[in-house]
């Protein structure tokens, strides 16, 4: 319970302590990164280190957003340990559907230069039709997978309106990727989309040499 945090919080007076707890709760629970200007415990580096230490107690780490704002995510080592635990990974259908959403809403716009290099959020929805055609899943299973992905904050449904076609974009959880996780995801997408490309060969070679080195 709270005793977990006490060794970290005990040195602070009541006001500082409340600021630390507010910042911790905000980065852990808000849908989007929170601006540091509104949270003294995120603005001041010494206090921010304490917030990071509070997060580390649960294997979490601070993730800096684009614009002096902060959220939290799993530390890379902890994410790797959780990914090895069958109880913590998504069903294979959900992963397949999520990959399709990422290919259509991020990888293709990025390859055509309409989306920046280091973002996993996208204004270009993967059309629902496209998902139905490409997923090879019965429509009921596709809908169930999309529902689970929406509930988990991994995709967001964009309603069609005006000239805009509806569909799915990556959800708010993609704010929470660490720089290391964003890089790995980029590599995985290259391996999935162009397994025979020179880039994919380079990624495989680098991973092999990393494995041999460790």
């Amino acid at each position: 319970m709270s005793e977990l945090f006490d060794p970290l919080l005990a040195p602070y007076d009541e006001r500082r302590r409340a600021e630390l707890v507010a910042a911790y709760m905000a980065v852990e629970h808000a849908a989007a990164p929170v601006p540091e200007v509104r949270f003294p415990a995120l603005r001041e580096p010494a206090l921010r280190r304490t917030v990071a230490a509070m997060l580390a107690l649960s294997g979490r780490t601070l993730v800096r957003g684009a614009d002096r704002d902060w959220t939290s995510g799993y530390h890379d080592d902890v994410a790797a340990a959780l990914a090895a635990d069958p109880a913590c990974v998504l069903p294979v259908e959900d992963r397949a559907v999520l990959t399709l959403v990422l290919v259509h809403s991020v990888a293709i716009p990025r390859a055509t230069g309409t989306l920046g290099e280091d973002t996993w959020l996208s204004p270009y929805p993967a059309a629902a039709d496209e998902l139905r055609r490409r997923s090879q899943l019965p429509v009921g299973e596709l809908e169930a997978a999309l529902r689970r992905l929406r509930t988990a904050g991994l995709v967001t449904q964009v309603k069609a309106g005006g000239d805009e076609a509806g569909g799915y974009v990556p959800g708010p959880q993609f704010h929470r990727l660490t720089p290391g996780a964003r890089r790995r995801l980029q590599e995985e997408l290259i391996l999935a989309a162009g397994p025979d490309s020179p880039l994919a060969a380079a990624i495989r070679a680098r991973r092999r040499s990393n494995e041999e080195a460790s």
Binding site: A22, A26, H29, A31
Partner: peptide, 24 residues
């Protein structure tokens, strides 16, 4: 269940007018 420091709950988001994770 996960527990939070000093009895805080995610309701703290309301005080700061921050959007929680969206729910269908």
């Amino acid at each position: 269940l996960p527990s939070w420091p000093d009895g805080a709950t995610p309701a703290v988001l309301e005080q700061y007018e921050l959007a929680p994770m969206p729910l269908d």
